[in-house]
Design a protein around this nucleic acid. Structure first.
Lengths: 239, 239
DNA sequence: CCCTTTTCACCTAGGTGGTAAGAT
DNA sequence: ATCTTACCACCTAGGTGAAAAGGG
């Protein structure tokens, strides 16, 4: 998967304008996305699985960069998991108007007859935080040397969190974003800030924040693919 | 414990000349040192215990620094652990002339009648490596914010090690050294390199490199004080 | 004989979803 | 009813010295 980079291509600093990011574990992300990815949020903070990892290219090997992530609401709805009341329609995945955004459309999958249903307007947005990759800042050469992994990033639903974790509303949908920021050594570099970064969004990484898994197929795929959940695997081992 | 800083006090850059380092866990280091500290070296690399940790002060909060460690031979001897052959003298701890260096003198302790005995000239010196603290480079403010811990540093006796570990000769004595290096942003800053660092040696951290512990009292103190060795503790717990 | 290597049980430290109880 | 929390057994990952085996 290659990320959409937004519409503006004008006026970027040459240290970031050629930057490119390839999502790692793309097929796993797509497998989750087809079912409707769910990510657990807890008071103490929970890692994402799959982990957000990218392979970078096109950076200036000798320049300094900061790498970071943030999470933007995909819509202004809150959701619930369950059976729709009447017949088809009325807000469930892919039914209403406005669902004609191919890459952002919710998954069509439903477990037995349960599915994600819109359930009113979004709650007030949580404090918008960012997560800096802990190796930041580092040279372009260092970032491009190997896969960059955001495995220290944790998601929480605690609005008062003071561990620096990403705060999300449960039962709301989010799109992870990844940003490459050139550390401009010039004085008053703030005035060029808008030119010095490049952002990437991978649609297959969007997810629903939950406090407990709703879709059993998501649970089973997490158990099957996350090494830390091996204790819940049933039968035949497949490497 | 405060470190000796070498004899030269002239011509240091103002970004390092006020730097100070206090050794953490000083009483534990001294307890080991009284018995004659031993550190295990293995082919794969072994951590030090106690871990080398310092609290820094006197740095420029806004300047960049690199922190690193190296290990210098304390003498040109190789040692063995055992009973001396004849009567007192002939090379054991504190017996010969030249042992009049108060801070570098070997410990007087002997287990039953065993002790460390000089056993000839040192083996050829191992490749002199340094260990950069993995957070390097970082601002002075960041380094001074909390204790700086070198818990990722590993010691090996494998001369061909390619994991970047510190290579030492077993049965030889070493003095850990700690260096604060100001990252000079000036062009051709190499020419000022000798002014841009400050070094610290804590005599209580000197040790004998071994492949297996020789002094049983060292073994018992390691077991009593290293959390990872809790499985070997016998009786009463003392916090 | 002295030193080194390998393997092992036993820890620390922390990431999983299940489960039952709690909250609204 | 629906969502959240706290606790738990069960993992991964890796740091301990003991003991036995290996090597010069």
């Amino acid at each position: 998967g290659w990320a959409s980079e937004g519409l503006r291509s004008s006026g970027k600093n040459r240290r970031v304008c050629h930057a490119a990011a390839r999502l790692e574990m793309g097929s796993l992300w797509e497998e989750f996305n087809r079912l409707g990815t769910e990510m657990i949020v807890t008071k103490a903070g929970r890692r994402m699985f799959p982990t957000f990892q990218v392979k970078l290219s096109g950076l200036d090997p000798l320049a300094d960069y900061v790498l970071l992530m943030d999470f933007i609401p995909l819509d202004d709805k809150r959701y619930r998991w369950g059976r729709s009341y009447g017949d088809a329609g009325a807000g469930e995945w892919g039914a209403g108007p406005g669902s004609a955004q191919p890459l952002l459309a919710p998954p069509r999958y439903a477990f037995h007859s349960s599915s994600w249903l819109a359930a009113g307007r979004a709650d007030p947005a949580a404090p918008g935080r960012v997560h800096f990759h802990p190796d930041s800042p580092a040279k372009g050469a260092q970032w491009m040397r190997q896969i960059v992994s955001f495995d220290k990033l944790k998601l929480t639903n605690n609005l008062l969190d003071d561990n620096g974790h990403i705060i999300l509303n449960s039962m709301h949908r989010y799109q992870p974003r990844f940003h490459v920021v050139f550390v401009d050594p010039r004085r008053d570099s703030e005035r060029f800030a808008h030119q010095n970064f490049k952002s990437f969004s991978f649609p297959e990484t969007q997810f629903m924040a939950v406090t407990a898994y709703q879709n059993h197929r998501i649970t089973q795929l997490k158990i099957a693919s996350n090494p830390f959940a091996k204790g819940f695997r049933d039968g035949d081992p497949e490497p």
